[in-house]
Design a protein around this nucleic acid. Sequence first.
DNA 1: GTAAGGACTGCAATCCTTTCCAGTGATGCG
DNA 2: CGCATCACTGGAAAGGATTGCAGTCCTTAC
Lengths: 335, 335
Amino acid sequence: MAPTIRDVARAAGVSQATVSRALSTPDLVRPGTRARVEAVARELGYRPNRAARGLITGRTGNLGLIVPDLANPFFASVVKGVQAAARAADHSVFIADTDEEAGAEADLLRALSKQVDGLILCSPRAPDEELAGVGSDTTVVLMNRMSGDRPSVTVDNADGMRQALEHLVALGHHRIAFVAGPRTSWSNTQRETGLSRTAEAGGVDLVRIGHFPPQFEGGVAAADLVVASGATAVIAYNDLVALGLLSRLGARGIPVPSAMSVVGCDDIGMSAMSHPSLTTVSVPKRSAGRATVGLLLSMLEAGADAGPVHRELPTQLIVRDTTAVATTPPTKGST
Amino acid sequence: MAPTIRDVARAAGVSQATVSRALSTPDLVRPGTRARVEAVARELGYRPNRAARGLITGRTGNLGLIVPDLANPFFASVVKGVQAAARAADHSVFIADTDEEAGAEADLLRALSKQVDGLILCSPRAPDEELAGVGSDTTVVLMNRMSGDRPSVTVDNADGMRQALEHLVALGHHRIAFVAGPRTSWSNTQRETGLSRTAEAGGVDLVRIGHFPPQFEGGVAAADLVVASGATAVIAYNDLVALGLLSRLGARGIPVPSAMSVVGCDDIGMSAMSHPSLTTVSVPKRSAGRATVGLLLSMLEAGADAGPVHRELPTQLIVRDTTAVATTPPTKGST
DNA sequence: GTAAGGACTGCAATCCTTTCCAGTGATGCG
DNA sequence: CGCATCACTGGAAAGGATTGCAGTCCTTAC
């Protein structure tokens, strides 16, 4: 059905080899020939068969992307960045969703590894040891976490937390809660350490509240603990959790930000739209996606001789309406 | 590097043909031979090269999925359903995001069509004519819309709207607003016609409010128009819009549901978590994804001889806390 | 004028798997 | 006992593109 390189060659009166060269390494053929071949190819609607090409070049032109949860807007944005960069480089991307189930990652990885040139692993949860085993066949780049000396793209979580905490301190808050994300999450660890370092330096009373799933429900569940802790401000593991906090605080009639300041993290689209709109640490999700693809492709170019590369993107506090000057803690009996 | 079928054949002392058969059509080889081949293959970690297989079978084992916006939780859920079904059938899926830009669809389609066995097109916006051209090379299944006699999977939008409207009528509402989605959206048209039919039959005063983007912001923008329309209840094109409405109504101090009932559509995860939680028409997103893959795969099996197939999935009203008995419209001076 | 070199182009091998066809040995039946 | 049949296996072609090698033709320099 579809025209092959032979059809083009015949129609253009040249050999298959010339057609191949005219289309992929134009410098090697005479301009006149090249033009003729290109014209015929266009007219016939010829598109090289990727499978055949992959068979000989050993490259598929496909990338793989493994994320924990596509329904999480954070990853949705990352995916968009990855898509855009991949398309620009004429690659397609397989996406697999592990449904927040760390075990599934290894399976997916194996399944995908044969059909892609390289893989991007967005795996905040899997333990280091598990990661160590993967990627013997394929080039793997980590995003949003680091592990050993594997190449990776991360964002400066610790610095984002510093900005958030300093912002709250400047507003007069002394006792500040942090609603932690999953225990095994790499970025949660980063954020915690960033916070405690800054807290120590600034003499802040930092209360870590449990580990919660990184979703809206997590925030809902954490809210009462935050209130009971006596903190006047809270930093959430991410925006979804922060929105959950907001929701529960609203239901309990605790005004934000007057009685409680709330800071999120990630700056997903919805956080600008909540009421009141959420102060949050913006992380460059799309850029991170793009950067990861860039790193992956450059590694594929270079072969294995490119050493390990890390790339860290900056974060930026965005002050909106959920943070305000500290007042009396909302404990019972106070006025 | 990676072991090929030759390596397995040599190690097992049989021909490549036998290895191939032992692994893909086991009935054709003697049990003893089969066992030996399987053992060797496992030991060597042999995995057939998909490109080579695809070259001869003409099938890649890949599916393509084109969605307007991955960041929209509705599509995220659909994607998850598609993923799951595809994986179960040992297929991988390419995902492409058009960024709500109808023009990009055709490009993506062409780009993807060569590398997949079939495509799922989630294209609520593109006009029929544009759709007519696509899919000459590849099998295309539409989801969430119909067009000509192309195979498709849809949900019963009209019936969902009927349920929503009847619910509101039963609560005593007479004047009801509908915040419409994009003008060119197929499902918006379906929903509108479902509503007007039911409204006519029930003697309801139905007010259509503009066309708005299917996002949170759309709802925010529409809210004031809804209030001004004098309606006591509003049905939104989808949940994101409904949440936007809720947000703006809350900001204006209009209590929901006492002064205004709100119904959404889609039942995305967050709608159960808003305050108050959103009454909405649930559509089976994951099932739709699964069903579409099923349809696509069955078409690929059957070849072109399978006629056009439509499959429609039911919708279901979920009553939560944003709908209540009608009271006086919230116009100035009432009470 | 001829040799050397360069610019293009073609032939043919190769990538890995599947599958058609033929061949082998054993079995069943007449 | 011989022939047809069957179950199983191997040889080899095919699928579409890339690429090393070799060949042709033309230009340039001596």
